[in-house]
Structures are given as C-alpha cells and as structure tokens.
Write a protein that binds this DNA or RNA. Structure first.
Lengths: 182, 182
DNA sequence: CATAGCATGTAAGGAGTTACATGATTTT
DNA sequence: AAAATCATGTAACTCCTTACATGCTATG
C-alpha cells in the first residue's frame, strides 16, 4: 500500500497530473520512491474511487487536457494515520550485491566493470542531488517548515549515494589487490 | 527474476534445504536479499523444474526429512551469464522517507519517535554485522577467494547501516532545532 | 504441558513490470 | 521529416505478501 501513500505525500506537497507525478517519481521524489506511469495511473484511479484524492480537468491550448489531482481531507487523514503507525526499515534487495556475493565464479574483469558502471551511476545521481541542494535548500533557516522535511529526504539521497561511492572504491581496491597477487 | 539468482548465489556458496535458505535469507544473506519461506519454496520448485538446481532427500533421525538443494552445471551457467549482464542501481523505495517527506502534516513528536525507532533498529543490525565481521573475516588475507566477495557484501551492509545511523542523527538534530524555536 | 524449533507446503490477493495503444504538438 | 514531449490509459504476466495448514521433537 506504500505506493498509495507515496502518491498522497507527493500530492500534498503539490497537486499535479498523473503525467507530472511520473516525472516527479523519476526525479525529485525519486530518492524515496520510484514508480512507472502505468502503476501511477492505476493507483490514481483507485485513490479517486476511495475519495482519498479528487481531480479537476484542466483544458489546455495546444496540448492534451490534463487531470489535476489533489488530496481530499479524507485522504490526508489516512496519510496522517499511516505516518503515525511505526514501520520497520526496508529490507535490502540488491542485484549488484547478489553478483558480488557470487563474484568468484566469474572473472574479476566482469565484476570490476560492473563496479565501475555503478560508480559512475552513483556519481551522476550525487551530482544532481548536490545541484538540487544548492538550488532549493541553500538557506535552510529561511525556508518554511515543510521544506526542512523535504530537505531531509534529499540529504538521505546524498548520504546514500556518497556511501555507495565509498563502497565501490573499497570494493575495487580489494579486488585489484587480488589481481596483483595472481 | 532476481530472487532466483539470489537463491542460486546462496546455494553455490553452500547447498542447503529450503528451510535453511529461509534462515540464511533472514541472516547472513539478508544484507543483499530478503525473502519469505513461501517465496523460497515456490522458487525452488521452479528452479528444479528448469533443472538449474537438483535435490537429494536427506533422512534424519528424530527430525523431518529435508531436501538438500545444489546448483547444477546448467544453473551455474545461467548464473554466470546473469552476472555478466550489466544492471542498474536498485531504485529506492522507502516508507520512512515517504513519512519524512510529508512529516510536516503530523506533530514532530511522531516523526522523532519513528526516527528513534529506526535508529535503534539500524544500531542492532550494525552490531550483528560487526560481530560477523570479527568472527569470520578477521584475517581476510588468509581466507579463500570466495570469502573476499562475501566480505564485500558484509562491508556494504556495515556502511549501509552506519550511513542510516548518521542520517537519523542529523534528522533528529534538525527537527529538535525546530522544536526549540517554537 | 506449553513453547520454540524443524520442515514443507497451498491459496488468495495485492503490487509491480513489460508490452501494447493512441494522438496531438513542439523541437531539431 | 523525424524525434521528443505532452498526456492518458489497458492487458497480461510475474512477483511478493499474508494467511492458512500440518505434524513431529526438543527444551524449559
């Protein structure tokens, strides 16, 4: 049910269309949730049936109409209740780590290439996150309450990517040591 | 399909029963994949149908029989091919971060309590991981090749938990600052 | 004698992925 | 003229979670 709540959280911050949600889930909301547009449209229909959100059709000149969704009072109530219920840390499921765990059955080259690939990806993400930080959260004390919470999710993204980068470096070092020994 | 590969990776390291796999996925294998016993039994049946694994029934005195699964040559071949195919970093989906993002709609107390709860959980995991590190990977240079790869997954778990702890502290500090201001 | 551990499953339903489908406008 | 962007969906399938189900043994 967490996708529903992630959508509610995003719509509470700013009402928008399914299309815009998909973009946000691919960008700024992406450091705490990811979802495809198919999932989002399906979930939006469900949420509207339950009256947790409501929509308004916006006519646009030279573009398709869009449906602007907002969270209803009922929806906000449910979101609050969900937030108040304690939850457990998300269990890890990570393809790369599976590959590393069984890394000894393939050549070191393959593993090193994959590590480099991931290092690059994490570096790119970190860089966009740092840009977001400078742009939107430069003087944090001046921003409204809500922004502080959103900054914390960005900060999590930053430390997360930094952490992966550090680990990639350690992993590559350890494997290179091994290569030299051969 | 990654659960299948996670199971193969675990069975390559050490053949075992479904029951044992479930325990391992809850423990040492848990820092890169998690799965319930229901999932595991279903996946084991599929893998055996495909002949990626084979089983042998072990009769036990005073205990139920168990089926010991091992990876076949065909299975290992598939695992190798899967490892060689590049993959992307796992997208984040995290309930706590959704809660934080919408944290301004509930009282600070609720958020702080949840942060403390998570801090505690991460501290416990870190502690078990550190114990594993000391027990099994104390003299890394003396261990066989395969152990180095497994150590890297443990190291990832350690940095992951350390990272969450650091973030929890930062988050609680920021929120406490806000409380003082009121 | 009750609880925890060993050992393996089925069934139903919810969540997520992949592929298909349409059609207008704006940019290169 | 082609590609990208805007905008919204359906269908089929796989994956994952929750609940149900059984039965024996060892430990406290």
């Amino acid at each position: 049910m967490a996708l529903a709540h992630a959508i509610l959280a995003a719509l509470v911050e700013a009402p928008c269309s399914g299309y815009d949600l998909a973009k946000r889930f691919d960008g700024s909301v992406g450091f705490f949730w990811s979802a495809s547009h198919q999932q989002i449209y399906r979930e939006l229909s469900k949420l509207e049936d339950q009256e947790w959100i409501s929509s308004e059709t916006i006519l646009q000149a030279g573009r398709p109409d869009k449906r602007l969704y907002s969270v209803t009072d009922l929806g906000q109530q449910h979101l609050k209740e969900w937030i108040a219920q304690p939850c457990e840390p998300t269990p890890i499921k990570d393809d790369l780590l599976v590959k590393i765990f069984a890394g000894h059955i393939v050549s070191n080259k393959i593993i090193l290439a994959e590590l480099e690939h991931h290092q690059k990806a994490h570096l790119e993400k970190l860089s966009t996150y740092r840009d977001l930080e400078q742009h939107y959260f430069n003087d944090l004390q001046e921003l409204p309450e809500a922004a502080k919470f959103q900054y914390l999710t960005l900060l999590n993204g930053i430390t997360y990517e930094t952490n992966w980068l550090a680990w990639c470096n350690q992993a590559m070092e350890l494997l290179n040591q091994t290569v030299e020994k051969l």
